[in-house]
Amino acid sequence: MSSASIVLPEGFENLSQYGAWAISRDEDRIAKRLETPFEEVVAFYDAVIDQVYEAMQYLSTRPVNNPSIDDINLVNILKSMAEIANAVEIYHQGPIPDAGDLRGYVSRIDRDLVGSDLNE
């Protein structure tokens, strides 16, 4: 697992150690949810959850076009939170019990913030 430090907008620098969760592609976020030991998933959630409200307020002032790299990193951390939120808050485990394999649920349309492309 990469522990690369990342740049983040002012006020969110304390999350810079979570570079491994600043993931741009849907397929990779799903893999991260499933492959990370669940205690580490919960630790990431716990580290970020109290700042989600402020992060959303900040990002709601930032237009979608031409985002800066620090804004992109913050969005991608929050997208990883969106990926694992049900796992932590509802399932209490990474995979969905008695269900399909999430790896089969990669969106064929995967526009990330660097560019837009179709993941087919």
């Binding site: 900040y58 969005v75 997208k79």
Partner: peptide, 19 residues
């Protein structure tokens, strides 16, 4: 989506629904 926050809100709607 108009803002970067919209991208996150949309993503959570989609992920909740996908699960």
């Amino acid at each position: 989506a108009k803002t970067l926050a919209d991208l996150v809100s949309r993503e959570f709607s989609a992920k909740r629904f996908r699960d």
